[in-house]
Amino acid sequence: MADATLTWPKNYNEVPKAAFTRSDLYLEEIKRIFHGPEWHPVAHESELPNPGDFRTIRLAGIPLLISRDEGGEVRVFYNACSHRSNQLETAVMGNKTEFECPYHRWLFSAKGELVGCPNPREFVPGFDKADYPLGQPRFDLFYGLIFVTFSAETEPLDQFLGEAGETLRELMAGDGRLKLLGYQKVRYDSNWKGYNDNDGYHAPLLHAAFKMLNWQGGKGRQYTATKRGHVCFESALSVASGPSVLKDKDLIAFKGQDPSVGSRIVQLFPTFVSTKHLDVINLRFATPIDAETTEVHYAYFAHQNDDADMLRHRLRQSSNLLGPCGLISMEDASIFHRIHIGSHTPGNAIFQKGVRDPAKLESEFSQNDESGNLPRWEYYRSVMGFERAQA
């Protein structure tokens, strides 16, 4: 990696600011992380409830087509014709049982099989349609959450998730039987690491709604789940009654079953964030666009067993509390951008809250510590091959 070297500080609580800004590092990150041996959540199967439903996405530049075939099976393909790699589907989502390439009219089923192509008698001798299905990356499902990896060396999904799997399952209503409510999509003027360096320390300090709503912090814990630095938050709910700034106090009502763990967050390396806060179920699918831009798809869900009142309640909370313009998170976009700007200065970002020993990497943290991000940074450093300074 001659063109993308970086010396890492000796102390575990220091991160070089250059990691957020250097474009030469970005190209190596795409190769080693996003196209390397990592699992990336890309959608939930409830986004494709019916046979023939599909959606398209791009993950670190690679176009994907996710579909549910006539038999109800979810499949993931590269969104490229197996003939000359023309982008097969341009719609964001829809319903089709067949996909036709407009360039040479090759036709594919929802199972990815090549079912028709003009003039095959004039093709290479021995041509067989069975040899030209749509290409597929490795993919797997976890309670309906669809993961993709572009490497044959990636460990099995259950090993990748580790302890985070149990918190993620509970976050998705315990069984993953979700119902899509809708999306919010945004591009942040920030490197992907600036977006994903969000921590537990800032929330009650940055977000004005916590004070406006007289929100009370509950007890909880934060822990890393694997060597990759996946971080999980499990927090009790303690919502103040009678906030004076809301005419409709049901907006922050909690109708769940267990207020002792009413809030859960799972951050999976490199960019996935999932949140269950109050009655909001929010999965955030993020991808780097370039070294200075990150795109995030906020997807909101209900449970399939919700009655009409609960469905409406979740919908109102989803669109008002979380997301790029939510009451308790609207300030994040500005901070992501300002981190990116400020990181163009010399030196290191130095973590403080929750750091008991700069020479030691821990795995258990208090709910509002910023030190929970450090195992993720250490994994990033090791994957990128950066040597730690000795003195």
Rank of each mutant, 00 (worst) to 15 (best):
F272H: 06
T275W: 14
N282F: 12
N282G: 07
G323A: 01
H313E: 15
D306T: 13
D306I: 13
L278G: 03
R284H: 08
N305C: 04
T294H: 05
I289S: 13
S318H: 15
E295F: 05
K276C: 13
T275C: 11
H313P: 14
H277Q: 12
R314N: 03
E292A: 10
A286H: 01
S274L: 01
D307Q: 08
N305I: 03
A286C: 12
I289V: 15
I281S: 05
N305T: 05
E295Q: 10
T293M: 04
P324W: 01
T275P: 13
Q317T: 11
T287R: 00
R316I: 06
V296P: 13
T287M: 00
R316W: 10
Q304R: 08
V280Y: 07
Y298W: 09
V273H: 10
V296N: 04
L321K: 06
S319F: 15
L283I: 01
L311A: 05
S319A: 13
D307I: 11
L321Q: 09
F285Q: 01
H303D: 07
K276G: 14
L322W: 07
D306M: 12
D309F: 11
I289H: 07
D279A: 08
L322D: 02
Y300V: 00
N282E: 13
A308P: 14
I281D: 09
Y298N: 03
E295L: 02
A308G: 13
N282S: 09
I289L: 11
R316M: 05
A291Q: 09
C325N: 07
Y300M: 00
R284V: 02
N305P: 07
T294V: 06
H303R: 03
T275M: 09
M310I: 12
S274T: 06
A291F: 13
E292K: 01
C325A: 06
I289K: 02
A286L: 01
M310T: 05
K276R: 11
H313I: 14
A286M: 01
I281K: 01
R312Q: 07
R314T: 07
R316K: 05
V273E: 10
Y300E: 00
R314H: 08
P324H: 05
L283R: 00
C325L: 08
A308R: 15
F301P: 04
G326Y: 02
R316P: 03
S274C: 04
A302Q: 03
L311P: 04
A291M: 10
S318P: 15
A291Y: 09
H277W: 15
N320H: 15
A302N: 05
M310K: 06
D309C: 09
E295M: 03
Q304E: 06
N320E: 10
L322E: 02
C325T: 10
H277F: 14
Y300T: 00
L283C: 03
D307R: 12
P288W: 00
T294F: 03
H297P: 12
D279G: 08
Q304S: 11
P288K: 00
F301H: 02
H313W: 14
L311G: 02
V273C: 08
G326F: 04
D279Y: 11
R284Q: 11
N282P: 14
Q317R: 05
D290A: 08
M310F: 08
R312A: 04
Y298I: 02
D309Q: 09
Q304V: 07
N305G: 03
Y300I: 00
N305K: 02
L327H: 09
I289W: 03
